[in-house]
C-alpha cells in the first residue's frame, strides 16, 4: 500500500516560526497552568504513593460496591481523608491513605481491613503497599535527577554525532514532549507513579528517535547534494522521512493501545503517557527540534566533514 505516490513536498520549514511559537506558547501555558492550578486550586499532579509516601490498599469485593459505602466504612474506622477509587472494575477498589497515621504498616493493614469489615463481607486483599515519607522524598529527588541526566546524556551524544545546534533543538523537543505529557496527566489527574516516570524517560529516548532520523537525513542530503540552501535541504529531509515517522508512530500506538486495553490498571498511566507522548513527538520532531536547529542557523559547514587534504595534493 502506498500513501503518497512520490515523496511529498510540504513546505514544513515555511511554518517553522509559527510552529516554534505555538510549541513555546503551549509549553509556557502548561507550566503556568500547573503553577497557577497548584497555587489557587490546590490541584497538583496526582502523585502516587511512590512519591508521596503513605499506604495503598487494593481489595476485591465479592460483588459490586459503591465507593461511598467504602468511604463511610473507612471514616468510621478513623481514616478521615482516604482516596477511594475503582481500579479496573466496580468490584476492585483502590484505597490511598496519606502518611499521617501514627502506626506502622502492619498495624495499618490490619486496621484498614477491619474497618472495611473484610471478614464479614468477604473482602479479599489484593495488594498493600506502605512507603515511608523519606523514601518518597528521595524518589522525587532521584526522579528529577534522572530526567536531567537523561537530557544531558542525550545532548552530549547528539553533540558528538552531529552538532551543538542540533543538540539544542533535540533537547528543546524533549523538554516540550515531557511537558505536554505531564500537562496531560495534570489535566486528567492520571496517577503519576514510578512506572509513569519510566514511561516519560522511555519516551524521551523514543521521541528523540524521530529527531535523529531527520538529522541523519539532513546530513546525508548535504553531502550528496551540493546545491540548494540549507532551508531546502531540511525541508526535503523532513519530507523524505515523513512517511517513516507516521508509520512508526502507528506501530508504537498500536502496541501501546494493546497495553492500555488489556494490560490492566497497573500499566494504565504508563500506556496513556506513552500514547500522548508519541502523538506529541510527531510534530515536535519537525517543528521544535528541526525548526529550532534551523532557526539557530545550522549551516552546511556545521555538518560536513572538513575537506580532505588529498584534493590539495593532486597535481
Amino acid at each position: 500500500m502506498r500513501i503518497f505516490a512520490k515523496v511529498p513536498n510540504f513546505n514544513f520549514m515555511a511554518q517553522r516560526k509559527a510552529g516554534l511559537w505555538v510549541s513555546s506558547l503551549l509549553s509556557i501555558g502548561v507550566i503556568l497552568m500547573m503553577l497557577l492550578g497548584a497555587l489557587h486550586l490546590g490541584r497538583n499532579l496526582n502523585f502516587g504513593i511512590d512519591f508521596t509516601g503513605g499506604v495503598l490498599v487494593e481489595v476485591v469485593y465479592p460483588q459490586n460496591i459503591e465507593l461511598d459505602s467504602v468511604r463511610n466504612d473507612l471514616k468510621a474506622g478513623g481514616y478521615h481523608n482516604p482516596i477511594v477509587q475503582y481500579f479496573g472494575g466496580t468490584r476492585e477498589v483502590l484505597i490511598r491513605l496519606a502518611p499521617e497515621e501514627k502506626e506502622n504498616s502492619s498495624a495499618i493493614s490490619a486496621s484498614v481491613l477491619q474497618a472495611l469489615g473484610a471478614e464479614q463481607k468477604g473482602v479479599q486483599l489484593r495488594r498493600i503497599e506502605f512507603v515511608g515519607p523519606q523514601v518518597g522524598d528521595e524518589l522525587t529527588v532521584n526522579g528529577s535527577l534522572a530526567m536531567v541526566f537523561a537530557f544531558i546524556g542525550i545532548a552530549l551524544y547528539i553533540m558528538f554525532r552531529f552538532e551543538w545546534k542540533f543538540a539544542v533543538g533535540a533537547i528543546a523537543a524533549l523538554v516540550h514532549d515531557a511537558l505536554m505529557v505531564v500537562g496531560f496527566l495534570w489535566i486528567f489527574q492520571v496517577e503519576f507513579d514510578l512506572t509513569t516516570l519510566a514511561a516519560i524517560l522511555a519516551l524521551i529516548g523514543y521521541s528523540n528517535n524521530e529527531t535523529i532520523v531527520i538529522f541523519d537525513r539532513v546530513r546525508e542530503n548535504l553531502i550528496n547534494q551540493r546545491k540548494g540552501t540549507i532551508y531546502d535541504i531540511v525541508n526535503l529531509s523532513v519530507n523524505q522521512t515523513l512517511l517513516r515517522s507516521i508509520i512508526t508512530h502507528v506501530t508504537t500506538l498500536l502496541v501501546c493501545t494493546a497495553l492500555f486495553l488489556l494490560g490492566g490498571p497497573s500499566v494504565h498511566s504508563f500506556s496513556i503517557s506513552m500514547i500522548v507522548g508519541v502523538i506529541v513527538a510527531t510534530y515536535s520532531s519537525i517543528y521544535v527540534s528541526t525548526g529550532l536547529a534551523v532557526a539557530l542557523g545550522v549551516s552546511r559547514e556545521d555538518l560536513l566533514p572538513p575537506e580532505t587534504k588529498e584534493i590539495d595534493e593532486t597535481p
Binding site: I154, A198, A202, N209
Partner: peptide, 25 residues
C-alpha cells in the same frame, strides 16, 4: 547507522532508569 544512532538515545534513557531505579523499574 541511523538505526544505531536512534537506539543509542533510547539506551541512554534506560541506563539512567536502571541507575536510579529499584525493583520493578
Amino acid at each position: 547507522l541511523t538505526i544505531a544512532d536512534a537506539n543509542v538515545t533510547v539506551l541512554i534513557g534506560t541506563l539512567v532508569l536502571f541507575a536510579m531505579g529499584a525493583g520493578p523499574i
